[in-house]
Design a protein around this nucleic acid. Structure first.
Lengths: 215, 215
DNA sequence: TTGACGCACGTACACCGTACGTGCCAGCCT
DNA sequence: AGGCTGGCACGTACGGTGTACGTGCGTCAA
């Protein structure tokens, strides 16, 4: 049995694995150590504390995003691609995604996406100030979307009785809600995401501060 | 000393107070009990477990939103007002807000905002399907914005060395990021929020599925 | 050869959520 | 009035948590 030496990377990988299999609540230093077949305190030779470990998890997930940016494509297509790249991590690591978005990322792992996004927005004809604004708006939308997607689907598992269960909402107090209950109950996350992205793109395209002549 | 009887409401209030003063990590059943001057196990006569208590916190914060909806106003003004009402909770309860957005709300406390929003979007000329879509897009943006606002400001406290500290980013690898570092470092949350809301409103206004004739 | 250093590990402590049992007291039934 | 019952505050106890600290073993440098 070749016991590969312990390392920060192996610990982080084990943590991600555990989170995806049993949820974030199952993560404990003891559990991770057991998973790796080592003593608990051995972990602390590679990771200062649990919080730093979770930061490592967030960083690893973030840097797993696969960007395929084509600088020659139309800026709107580049935006579409980048938005989808973000959403893909919610599929690869659904339960870790909650960690990523709810934790303030201090490292520079998230810098490459930002660079790509800014380049795209500049190529769409925005100056620096507006590019940053647009980026922030986009990030807010994406983070909010992913949060709903992974929050509403704790595992993917039990067909939970949707939060708004028709019949049981008072239709005189909440007429619209009760009328649209079937629609509110179901949610095609992919379609909703794409819809939002298209709305934002058309809003961006129509913004007056943009200089025409997009490449 | 008139010891007011323990109750779920008093427990939830104490929890919110504690969260705002010392952060969500400081919340423990023992701590809350001490805050109320009672024994730990007394809490369990009013709250089934800690998770339910936190749900109570989320619910209480949500229902603290002050809506002043004017059905006769232009729909865009109503949207603006409702969006701002959401953001106000991030100011009243910055640290609890993180809890609200990162927890899947199963109760019906969040139903009234939904009802108001749907009414507004219907009055803007959308059918049910599109109203729900628009609402979801808006919620995603708002949640993402609040998450950034309260996440970047863990207390309001120490002037943290912003995540992207000019100088130290490689400007050949990340030219745009390093050029715009001063802009990325600062963030006027209110202005960014208003900007995003205006963008979304104009995107909504331009959507073809909308029947003109908005009241 | 010897010294230092890195790293795996065990023990120990303070704290956590909560299952369970106990006792007090108010209100109702007879 | 007497007795019973049920609600509620509380203490104890158990299995879990993060991690500070000390110990011993291996491998390299001098």
């Amino acid at each position: 049995m070749t016991t590969e030496p312990l390392s920060r990377a192996r610990i982080v990988a084990a943590a991600i694995d555990l989170i995806e299999r049993e949820g974030a609540d199952a993560v404990s230093m003891r559990r991770i150590a057991a998973e790796l077949g080592v003593g608990v305190m051995s972990l602390y030779n590679h990771v200062p504390n649990k919080d730093a470990l979770l930061s490592g998890v967030a960083e690893a997930v973030m840097s797993g995003i696969e960007f395929t940016d084509d600088p020659d494509a139309h800026w709107s297509d580049r935006v579409r691609m980048q938005a989808r790249a973000f959403r893909q991590i919610a599929h690869h690591y659904p339960r870790s995604t909650m960690l990523v978005v709810s934790r303030t990322l201090h490292s520079s792992a998230g810098l490459l996406p930002v660079e790509r996004a800014l380049a795209t927005l500049r190529s769409a004809g925005f100056d620096g100030v507006d590019a940053v604004r647009m980026l922030r708006m986009f990030i807010a939308f994406i983070v909010g979307s992913l949060l709903r997607e992974v929050g509403v689907t704790p595992s993917f598992a039990p067909p939970q009785p949707r939060s708004v269960d028709a019949e049981q909402v008072d239709e005189t107090l909440f007429p619209h809600v009760s009328e649209l209950a079937p629609l509110l109950g179901r949610c095609d996350h992919e379609a909703e995401f794409e819809f939002g992205v298209e709305m934002l793109i058309s809003a961006i395209a129509a913004h007056p501060a943009r200089e025409e002549g997009a490449r």
